[in-house]
């Protein structure tokens, strides 16, 4: 075979990392433009949270076709958890999903998060990163909750601002 496998794989990695970079950069560029439009009187965190909501809402719509109750509540929650973890993985993170004690409870754990790095590049306060991630996921779940007629919640339980250690989110069915 005339294919130089190492060269081809290196090129693919570069392309993947560029694409992942663009995800973060697009979000923060969006935030930056929104801040400029909003003017000086607005808190940057409010704008960032709004940006997270808009992103989350759109992502939520795109995952509706994959929602499936055929495996019951436990199966559904696991699929949803994996979908949310998958978003992190697509961004370049390392994320896993674990069942909680309750059948309607899932923990999403991220041990490598690229978002703080992107945030730093755009001069965004580190505190904003985890809060916006939580808001984005909450927004994703808005349409999913209505669509499946299940009150879904997600909350940040643990966050390491600079992306080291572990970030933990709890996905659960609200009573």
């Amino acid at each position: 075979m005339p294919v130089d496998a190492e060269k081809e794989i290196t090129r693919l990695w570069k392309a993947l990392h560029s694409a992942q970079d663009e995800i973060g950069k697009t979000y923060y560029r969006w935030r930056q433009v929104a801040l400029e439009f909003a003017g000086d009187d607005v808190k940057s965190l409010d704008v960032a949270l709004r940006a997270a909501e808009v992103f989350g809402k759109d992502i939520g719509k795109s995952i509706l076709p994959r929602m499936n109750w055929l495996k019951g509540e436990e199966g559904f929650m696991m699929i949803l958890g994996k979908t949310l973890a998958g978003l992190w993985i697509t961004d370049g993170g390392l994320a896993t999903v674990e069942k909680g004690e309750d059948p309607g409870e899932i923990f999403i754990k991220c041990t490598r998060d690229p978002w703080p790095t992107w945030a730093k590049e755009f001069g965004v306060p580190m505190e904003e990163v985890a809060i916006c991630r939580e808001r984005m996921y909450q927004s994703i779940l808005e349409d999913v909750s209505v669509f499946m007629n299940i009150p879904l919640k997600i909350e940040l339980q643990k966050a390491i601002p600079r992306g080291h250690g572990e970030t933990v989110m709890r996905l659960y069915k609200a009573e």
Binding site: V146, F147, N149
Partner: peptide, 8 residues
């Protein structure tokens, strides 16, 4: 009811 659309 305003159930979101599955298909965009």
């Amino acid at each position: 009811s305003a159930v979101p659309q599955r298909l965009r």
